[in-house]
Design a protein around this nucleic acid. Structure first.
Lengths: 336, 336
DNA sequence: CGGTTTTGCACAAACGTTTGCACACCTCAG
DNA sequence: CTGAGGTGTGCAAACGTTTGTGCAAAACCG
């Protein structure tokens, strides 16, 4: 990495000043065609590449969007990333990706690094562990544009983009009811996630609207791990009056739960119907995928979050003019 | 983003020079305890964070590893990332992730950006489209440490880490043969990928060793898209003598091919056995997953690639002392 | 031809750090 | 008392850019 070609070197070789070289490279009008061409020619020949570092220091901005999310390998987030990338690319911004691995301390640390790196803006989806927002507030206090997406902690004055999961749960439950199911279970996520509460509300609303009783025995929560999902699904199946349908927190939960059903000798979607929230692209590959999925449009979420962020960065939206975008989910019917 | 606290500001408020502040923050021995504490206290109070940009410019290094890969959402690569991250984190380096989306021009552009960003090193897995290595050679010419992983183009003098897919294919085929299968098909990837050639060689070697005939009708190539996989699988099934087992290029191909089998009324793994190369974590969820999978240890690949890169960066390995690590795959038996 | 405008370039400061060097003071040994 | 060594700090240069300003020469205008 030694011997990196700089503007100074080009200047020296051409017997002009560094400022002239800089301007020539930017095609500044006050540089003669002769000099301009000479500079470009030599720059090409020496394979000069400007130092982003130096440029950033001088410009006071980095052209970087810091993106923090729990886990890259989750398909949902990968899609969000793609949405962000698309727009960022158009705007000549680069996206710096960081995973919190759902750990609070890691998330906190990453935000500090991002601030130290002087990123132009931050996109954040908080870790499961995250219960407080002080570290996020610090980012805001530093006047760094920030947009929250998907996993949004409560009580925070920041721009946000999310998908209306309450409505998704509502429509899914309604669809099951209309299909004739009378004992619809909810295999939900942990309390701590707002996403769980949203699903819960939508589920309840639909049941009530459809005149179905709300039975606590049909409502289970798990921490989304395979063993606990299995445990809860077992409870559902071993009760005297089994559910004839299950709405699950997400696809992983659905798959884990289906496994349990098979152990009971049940045929998925014949003996017991499944509807889920889509975060896997693989449902097409399953022999018995959930009958319907609530599509959360992750790509759209990423795209919109990036759009807001870029508008704030470019001053088209005042930082105080809080944006709150709620995308509509879509119930994708697969079976029957 | 205005009003960012700098060393100068702290210096001004404490009536000392910026250099003193800088040294105080680094706990330089020649700074008095009194000054040191005062500086730290004020820095904390003002929530000072050093400018990474300025520091990088001055230090001549960035502490960043640029990582370029085709597609983040592919589970294989997500795992590689995690392996890299682990080690990078220990060494206080950050990983900048870039996706080529399997496009050559994008890959080329990314490498330029990385060079411009003066990253300390590059980890690269090339795009499917990539047929030439000129852009990679340019990175090497700039003396930027580089390690290739997984998808490695031929004829390039760079460090590399990969998994021995020939051996994987060999063992998978052998396992099928020993299980009694006599007509083992190979549903391979495109010619352009070395990975395809490796699988091919392993497959052939095993057949020969097991005394099975090599039948061209049993060897198909697809571009890994669903339609073409379906087409090739159809060809295999509609031939007079159907295969009784299939070794597929990867899990996606296996799943697509299985779908076709179901259309033929075949029961996967009973009427026709599948063995695949693992890139999905989901096999546990499938009712009929491939009977066996060749595990490529992506996390390990990432970890080792990062290890080599860091050693080159830190001068523990001479750039000319080319490392070539070939990890052994593992045949994970799932069925019977 | 005198004056104004345009053209082409260099100088220098600035961005926020780090660090070699100088310097003043203080301490202590001889 | 003198000199050596230690201690605490400041100055200034440097990293590689960008950009405001200044200035000379060239070009233009009437």
């Amino acid at each position: 990495m030694k011997d990196v070609v700089t503007i100074k070197e080009i200047a020296r070789q051409l017997n002009v000043s560094p400022s002239t070289v800089s301007r020539a490279l930017q095609n500044h009008p006050r540089i003669s065609a002769y000099t301009r061409d000479a500079v470009h020619a030599l720059a090409d020949q020496l394979k000069y590449l400007p130092s982003t570092t130096a440029r950033n220091l001088q410009r006071g901005r980095t052209g970087v969007i810091g993106m923090v999310l729990p886990e890259i390998r989750e398909n949902f987030f990968s899609e969000v990333i793609n949405g962000v990338e698309e727009l960022a690319f158009e705007h000549h911004m680069t996206v710096a990706l960081y995973q919190s691995h759902d750990r609070f301390d890691r998330e906190k640390q990453i935000l500090t690094v991002l601030a130290s790196n002087r990123v132009d803006g931050v996109l954040l989806s908080v870790a499961k562990e995250t219960q407080q927002i002080h570290h996020i507030q610090e980012v805001l206090d530093r006047q760094i544009p920030l947009v929250l997406f998907d996993r949004i902690p409560p009580h925070i004055a920041a721009h946000q983009v999310e998908c209306n999961m309450e409505k998704g749960a509502y429509e899914a439950t309604k669809w099951l009811a209309r299909r004739g199911h009378r004992r619809i279970a909810l295999l939900n996520g942990p309390h701590a996630l707002i996403a769980s509460e949203e699903r819960y509300r939508g589920y309840i609303t639909a049941l009530v609207e459809e005149g179905l009783p709300v039975e606590n025995a049909l409502i289970k929560r798990s921490d989304l791990t395979t063993p606990e999902t299995a445990l809860k699904m077992n409870q559902l199946l071993s009760s005297t009056t089994r559910p004839d349908a299950v709405l699950t927190f997400n696809d992983y939960v659905a798959l884990d739960a289906m496994q349990v059903c098979r152990n009971y000798g049940l045929v998925v979607n014949r003996d017991i119907a499944f509807v889920s929230f889509a975060n896997l692209p693989l449902n097409t590959y399953l022999e018995h995928p959930p009958l319907a999925s609530v599509e959360q449009h992750p790509y759209q979420i990423g795209f919109m979050a990036a759009e807001i962020l870029l508008n704030v960065i470019n001053g088209k939206i005042a930082p105080t003019d809080l944006q709150k975008v709620i995308l509509e989910p879509e119930l994708v019917i697969r079976g029957q």
